[in-house]
Design a protein around this nucleic acid. Structure first.
Lengths: 215, 215
DNA sequence: CCACTTTCCTAGCGTTTGTTATGGAACGTA
DNA sequence: TACGTTCCATAACAAACGCTAGGAAAGTGG
């Protein structure tokens, strides 16, 4: 019963090998969840785009819920990579700027669905998928917590004024990110989203905002 | 075939009267759509909370799609009332402020579901409900257009500087509104949303922003 | 070549979905 | 009382849902 090493490295050593590319199938599943959401995507939809049959899907990914969570993890990327990117930014402003522009760009890709998978997939949801919604909310709140920590670091370092409301600042960035997903779904173009990003960042506090004269 | 005057005023003059309160039933349906979204709310869910049977629902409201659209119209309120509120605001800033605080408050009600019905109900969606999504997007874009027009009016009147990007400004407000719905769903408290509102409005352009000294 | 393991496909499981036919009961009118 | 109209409740419809038994097929290790 110890056989099921889920993670990478250990492949099965015997038995018939998979006849399809597991990664490619997962990618297609992710795109479909991205486009239609979690509950509105049926198993038939998935097997069609993945090019496999239902039993193959179940043996390879468990069930619909686990497949979605794996697709969501693939979409959100490595959480540690996000943390590193946030830490490596020279200031919290830079981190927020990168986060916002990356979102605006990702939500308006030519070859990908509009909007954010995490925002689109679970905004609605029956009681049966409450755990899926919670998992997605966790990913969001992890991002928010990292940004907030980065802001507080800047406050301590004197880069941001001491009266800065770190929660409100991080919250605003998160709200704009999530909101841009809705706008992108409604058809708003990338340039318009980027203009929103620039406008939002104009509210970023500066040590000199109320003291010296910018520009 | 001309009998079906949907709107108010003309009630049926003969036959057995309705045994339930149509308005109260619609209210319950709205709350359920608000909580679970459009596709995740089943007819059984609706008939349960409405206290009627399926055939009664169909004869009184048409079908699930029309019931939802009627509930959404009830939720969004009279569009003309919104337009009047926007026009009656003394400035575009006031209109945006009212819009944002009203959203933050409505999304965190004690007796209502968290978030926005329009944002939650149709963020995901199968191809079958594309028309429902379009109807909801229309309501959003009507709000955005009104706010944008109000901003442009202020620009013409000299209340806002001529270099103001009305589209970006209105877009930011809309993005924050939609984003706050996601945050509210995730459990963010009303006070935190109101802090986001205040922070967002700090980016509002002022004729004097780069010329004279505020405060 | 022979077990043994694992994946593959066909077919179908039971449940839930949105929606409706049917027949009787309740109303205003005559 | 009798009529036309309208509503209610029972029951059921076909389709789609997530999911899985069962046996054939394709690999590895002995």
């Amino acid at each position: 019963m110890e056989s099921g090493g889920v993670s990478s490295g250990s492949r099965r050593r015997t038995g018939r090998p998979l006849s399809f590319d597991r990664d490619a199938a997962l990618e297609q599943a992710m795109l479909t969840f991205w486009r239609h959401g979690y509950e509105s995507t049926s198993i038939v939809d998935l097997t069609t785009v993945m090019g496999i049959t239902a039993p193959s899907l179940y043996t390879a990914f468990g069930d619909k819920k686990r497949l979605f969570l794996e697709a969501a993890r693939r979409y959100a990327g490595d959480p540690e990579a996000m943390a590193r990117a946030s830490d490596n930014a020279s200031t919290a402003y830079d981190a927020a700027h990168k986060l916002l522009t990356a979102a605006a760009t990702a939500y308006t890709g030519d070859t990908t669905p509009k909007g954010c998978l995490l925002a689109s997939a679970t905004a609605s949801g029956s009681a049966a998928s409450a755990d899926v919604q919670r998992a997605i909310a966790d990913i969001r709140q992890r991002t928010a917590a990292q940004l907030r920590a980065r802001i507080e670091r800047d406050i301590s370092a004197g880069v941001l004024p001491p009266w800065t409301d770190a929660a409100a600042l991080a919250g605003t960035v998160m709200a704009v990110i999530q909101g841009m997903s809705v706008l992108a779904r409604d058809g708003t173009a990338r340039a318009a989203l980027l203009a929103i990003v620039e406008h939002t960042l104009q509210a970023w506090p500066t040590r000199s905002r109320a003291m010296t004269e910018p520009l």
